[in-house]
C-alpha cells in the first residue's frame, strides 16, 4: 500500500506542474496588471515603472516564469504583489480556515447525504421517499452563492424581527468567530466557532449532500437486493444491523469515489461561499488574487488547491481499499 501511495504521488507531480504552467499562461494572457491598484492620476508613471521593476514584472514572461519556478522549487512561494507580504504567511493563515470549512462541509455532505439516502432506500416509494427526492432535486439545483445569501437573509437577518424565534437558531452571518472570541472560555470558543460554521458549511455542502443522498439511495437499493443481505436476514440479524452493517458498507463503495470527485467542487464552491460569508480562507485569497492579477499568489493558491485535490483523491483511494477488501488484495499483489 505504501508503495502504491508513493507511486500515486509521483504520478501527480507532472499533473500539478501542468496545471501551474497553464495557470501562469492564462494569467499572462488575460488582460490586467497587478499594479492596477496603484493606477491613479497622482501616481506618476515612473513610480509604476519602479514598482514593476521592484517586483520583476518588467522582465519578459518566460523569464518571469523561470524565476518564479526557481524560487518555487527552492520552497519560496514569493511575495504577494498586492498584500506585500510573503505568500507563505498568507497561506499559513488561510489554509487551516479553508480546511475547517470544507472539512465540516464534507462531513455534513456525507453524514446527511448518506443518512437521507439510507432512509429513502429503506422506505422506497413511500411518501417520505418522494418528498426527499423532490427536496434533493430542488436543493441540488440551487447555486451555493445564492443559497448562502438566502441563508443569511433568513437565518441571520429576518429572524431578528421575529420575536418567538429561538436565539439558538439565529446564526452569525459571517466570519469565523465573534469579535470577542479571544475573551471566551475554551467551550465558548468552540461553540462560537461552531455557530459560525453552520451557515457557510450548509451553503457549501447542501447541494452535494443532495446528490450524495441520491447516489446512496440508488446504491443502497442495488445492495439491498443482493443475496448476502438475504443471508444476513436469514441469520436473524435485526434490520438495523442488516442495513447499517451489511448493506451500508457495500453501498458506500461507489460513494467513496464521490469523495474524490466532490473535493474540487468543494474547493471551487468555497471561493464564492467564502466571499459571501467573509470566511478568511484560500477561496477568497485566490478570488482576490485573480481579481487583482496577483499572479504569484494565484500560482501558490492554485498549487495548494491542486495538492489538496490530489491528496483528497488519494485519501478516497485509500478509503476505498479500507472498505473493500477486494481492492486491497489487488493492490497488495501489484
Amino acid at each position: 500500500m505504501t508503495a502504491y501511495i508513493f507511486r500515486r504521488l509521483l504520478q501527480a507531480i507532472p499533473l500539478v506542474f501542468g496545471i501551474l504552467t497553464l495557470v501562469f499562461v492564462i494569467l499572462q494572457v488575460a488582460p490586467g496588471d497587478p499594479m492596477a491598484i496603484y493606477m491613479h492620476p497622482s501616481v506618476a508613471p515612473e513610480v509604476l515603472e519602479q514598482m514593476r521593476e521592484n517586483y520583476g514584472l518588467d522582465q519578459p514572461v518566460h523569464i518571469q516564469y523561470v524565476r518564479w519556478l526557481k524560487s518555487f522549487l527552492s520552497g519560496d512561494l514569493g511575495t504577494s504583489l498586492t498584500q506585500n507580504r510573503p505568500i507563505a504567511a498568507i497561506l499559513a493563515e488561510r489554509i487551516p480556515n479553508t480546511l475547517l470549512l470544507s472539512g465540516t462541509s464534507l462531513l455534513l455532505i456525507f453524514a446527511i447525504g448518506i443518512a437521507i439516502g439510507i432512509v429513502q432506500a429503506v422506505r422506497q416509494h413511500s411518501k417520505l421517499d418522494h418528498a426527499l427526492t423532490l427536496g434533493a432535486l430542488f436543493i441540488y439545483s440551487m447555486p451555493s452563492f445564492w443559497l448562502g445569501l438566502m441563508l443569511i437573509l433568513i437565518l441571520a437577518y429576518r429572524v431578528h424581527w421575529v420575536e418567538w424565534w429561538p436565539e439558538a437558531l439565529k446564526f452569525p452571518p459571517s466570519g469565523m468567530d465573534s469579535v470577542n472570541y479571544d475573551l471566551l472560555s475554551t467551550w465558548g470558543k468552540f461553540t462560537d466557532r461552531l455557530d459560525h460554521l453552520v451557515l457557510p458549511s450548509i451553503a457549501l455542502g447542501v447541494s452535494s449532500a443532495a446528490s450524495v443522498a441520491r447516489y446512496t439511495r440508488s446504491s443502497m437499493l442495488e445492495v439491498i437486493r443482493q443475496d448476502y443481505i438475504r443471508t444476513a436476514r436469514a441469520k436473524g440479524l435485526p434490520e438495523r444491523t442488516v442495513i447499517l452493517k451489511h448493506a451500508l458498507k457495500n453501498a458506500l463503495l461507489p460513494i467513496i469515489t464521490l469523495l474524490g470527485l466532490y473535493l474540487p467542487f468543494l474547493f471551487s464552491g468555497a471561493v464564492l461561499v467564502e466571499v459571501v460569508f467573509a470566511w478568511p480562507g484560500m477561496g477568497r485569497a485566490i478570488y482576490d488574487a485573480i481579481q487583482q492579477r496577483d499572479y504569484p499568489t494565484v500560482m501558490a493558491t492554485t498549487f495548494v488547491f491542486a495538492v489538496m485535490v490530489v491528496i483528497a483523491n488519494l485519501i478516497a483511494d485509500i478509503l476505498y481499499a479500507v472498505v473493500d477488501p477486494r481492492i486491497r488484495y489487488e493492490r497488495e499483489r501489484r
Partner: peptide
Amino acid sequence: RVIQEPTTLLGELIA
C-alpha cells in the same frame, strides 16, 4: 473587518 458581500455586511450590522 472585511466582509465583501453587502448583504452579509448588513446582516452583521443588524445582528
